[in-house]
C-alpha cells in the first residue's frame, strides 16, 4: 500500500537497539504497574468475591467483579488504541492483573494464611478481554466496541467461569443439611474475622423470580460494563493528554 511509504520511519541499528531497550523497559514496567494498580483497586472493592469460593454466588459475583474489572482494561485499551493502534490493551491489563493476582493468592491466602488453593482461586477475565480487543480491531469503532465487546464482557463472565465453579455447587448432604461444597469450605476453614453473615451473596428478592437469576444478572452486568467502558476509556485517554503546567 502506498500509505506505508509516508509512514516509513527510518532507523539505524543504533536506533533500533535503543528503541528495543525502551520496549522492554516499558513492557515490564506496565505489567507491574497495571497489574498492581488494578490489583490494589480491585482488592478493596471486589476482592472478597475473588478470594473466596463461598462468595461466588449467582447474584453479586456475576455483577460486581465484571463491572469493576472493566475499569483498567478499558482505559488501557483506550490508550494503546488511540496512541499506538496496538489493540491489546484489555488483554494486556487483564493478563498483568491475573498474573500478579495468582502470586498474591498463593503466597497470601495459601502459604501465609493457610487456606487450600481450591478455596481461594480467582475468576478469569482473559477471554472477555480478547473479545473486547478483537471487537475494536474488527470494527475500528469505540462506540461499537463498547456496545458489543463490553456488553459481552458482562454477559459472558458467568459462563466463562462456571467451568471452574460448577463443581463447587454440587449439593452435599452434610449433618442432615443441604449445602454446597463451596458453603462447606466456608464453614470448615476457619475465618475468625469473616463470619458467614458478612458474605454478600444471594440477597434481594430476585431469587424468587422463576430461576432467571443468572441471565438477568448477566444482562444487567453487561449494561453496566458498557457504561463503565465508555467512562473508563474517556478517563484513560484524558489522563493521557500531554498537559503541562507552569505552576502547581
Amino acid at each position: 500500500m502506498a500509505v506505508t511509504e509516508t509512514t516509513e520511519v527510518r532507523s539505524s541499528a543504533l536506533g533500533l537497539r535503543l528503541e528495543r531497550h525502551v520496549d522492554w523497559m516499558i513492557i515490564i514496567i506496565l505489567i507491574l504497574i497495571i497489574g498492581a494498580a488494578s490489583g490494589f483497586t480491585l482488592a478493596v472493592t471486589m476482592g472478597d468475591w475473588e478470594y473466596w469460593v463461598d462468595w461466588k454466588d449467582r447474584r453479586f459475583w456475576p455483577l460486581v467483579p465484571p463491572v469493576l474489572m472493566m475499569i483498567f482494561p478499558a482505559a488501557v485499551l483506550g490508550i494503546t488504541w488511540t496512541k499506538l493502534r496496538i489493540p491489546f490493551g484489555a488483554t494486556f491489563a487483564v493478563f498483568s492483573y491475573t498474573l500478579l493476582k495468582w502470586v498474591s493468592l498463593y503466597f497470601n491466602f495459601n502459604v501465609f494464611a493457610g487456606f487450600p488453593m481450591s478455596m481461594v482461586w480467582q475468576s478469569t477475565f482473559i477471554p472477555l478481554a480478547i473479545l473486547l480487543d478483537a471487537t475494536i480491531v474488527i470494527t475500528g469503532s469505540v462506540f461499537i466496541t463498547g456496545f458489543v465487546g463490553a456488553f459481552l464482557w458482562g454477559v459472558l463472565m458467568y459462563p466463562v467461569n462456571w467451568v471452574m465453579l460448577a463443581g463447587f455447587h454440587e449439593p452435599i448432604l452434610y449433618n442432615g443439611e443441604l449445602v454446597t461444597a463451596a458453603d462447606l469450605m466456608g464453614f470448615e476453614y476457619i475465618r475468625t474475622g469473616l463470619p458467614e453473615y458478612v458474605r454478600m451473596i444471594e440477597r434481594s428478592t430476585l431469587r424468587s423470580f422463576a430461576d432467571t437469576v443468572v441471565p438477568l444478572t448477566a444482562v444487567f452486568a453487561g449494561f453496566l460494563c458498557v457504561l463503565v467502558f465508555y467512562v473508563s476509556w474517556a478517563a484513560g485517554t484524558f489522563l493521557c493528554r500531554q498537559t503541562w503546567v507552569k505552576k502547581v
Binding site: D54, K56, D57, R58, A166, G167, H169, E170, P171, L178, V179, T180, A182, D183, R199, I201, E202, R207, V213
Partner: peptide, 8 residues
Amino acid sequence: HPVTTPLR
C-alpha cells in the same frame, strides 16, 4: 454438573 444448588 447437571444439578447444582445455590449458596446457602
